[in-house]
Design a protein around this nucleic acid. Sequence first.
DNA 1: CCTTTTTTGAAACAATCATTTCAGAATAAT
DNA 2: ATTATTCTGAAATGATTGTTTCAAAAAAGG
Lengths: 192, 192
Amino acid sequence: MARNVEFNEALAIQKAMEVFWKKGYNGASLRDLTDAMQINSSSLYNTIGDKQELFVRCVQHYTDLRKLDWEKRLNGEKSPFATLVDYIHEAVNIIINGEDSCMAVKSAFEVATNDQRIKQILAADDQRSYQFLHDLISKAMEQGEIRADEDPSLLADYFNSTWTGWYESYILHKDPLKIKRMAAFFIKQLSK
Amino acid sequence: MARNVEFNEALAIQKAMEVFWKKGYNGASLRDLTDAMQINSSSLYNTIGDKQELFVRCVQHYTDLRKLDWEKRLNGEKSPFATLVDYIHEAVNIIINGEDSCMAVKSAFEVATNDQRIKQILAADDQRSYQFLHDLISKAMEQGEIRADEDPSLLADYFNSTWTGWYESYILHKDPLKIKRMAAFFIKQLSK
DNA sequence: CCTTTTTTGAAACAATCATTTCAGAATAAT
DNA sequence: ATTATTCTGAAATGATTGTTTCAAAAAAGG
């Protein structure tokens, strides 16, 4: 009985996410966004909503991707400790090679203080990140891969919050060796 | 031969800093700023400059205050390790009680990626923070207050980047106990 | 093919943005 | 007191902000 939506919404969200990621919420204008999404603002307001709603969808999309990654890693074939070490090394590579830091971290500091919806999405994401680490650490302890004289939930909390500072360090000093040394120390703390 | 500047520039910078601190660079409008500074925009542009210049001055002011604090602590009478532990506990209290996170961290993620002047100021600030920790840690090792089987520069780097994640954690979860537990673990790692 | 419903594109919207202008008030030195 | 210079306040600047309007284009179902 009527026309269908012409543009690919998933692709448009992906493009908008990249703009927000690079420029931040306040730094990205609606023209920046619609240019990247290759749609007219009327289409945006008809289907997705206003700027805030678009941002929510983008942050949600970002955290969905992370969730998939964690699930895939947990279902992998390697041992818990090997999975953890792999993850850390890849995280280091992302920090060193990526140029836009982490969107979850940036958004936490820029908007989570004022926007409750964003805060809630990021809190849930952080909780999943914690759970991912907690699972691996406690399994590694059970299997005797790492020593079991610390509380897994404390270690997961502690390590989970550690990443953020590495991003900041790399923004300010652009020193890959610094990050790699901290990661090595991080792993050594776990294993010995 | 002529009139003097009427307003207190130092006080105006302080007020502007508080606005940027809370709202971020892009989130703070010039009206927000001049309202808080209680000056006309013409006075601002005559004496300090444009918005970017004002922000530079505010970030500089923020880091100057931190520098003074570190110097005062280094010149205190307590032992190196006691000074370090005091500092950590006060940092935890600031995270838990403050409501606007850390301006240096927020600015690093929002603008340091695009603005080289801000990046440079924050990198210098981070370097001083590192030096502060490095001084205390190496002195504590010399005096036998903590074990000396780790590289002080690595420990200083590692601990220096750890704070940032605590701020993020508190923004997302508002859980004081979580921060306190991580701080306690932090101190235990050093001392044992 | 025709009707109905929806999407699209371009333009317009008022509001706000950072910044500038300029006349008049203020003040320091003569 | 006069003069020379600078600062201040209010208003205006043009650009950009997020958002809306609406006619024309598109397409699905009868």
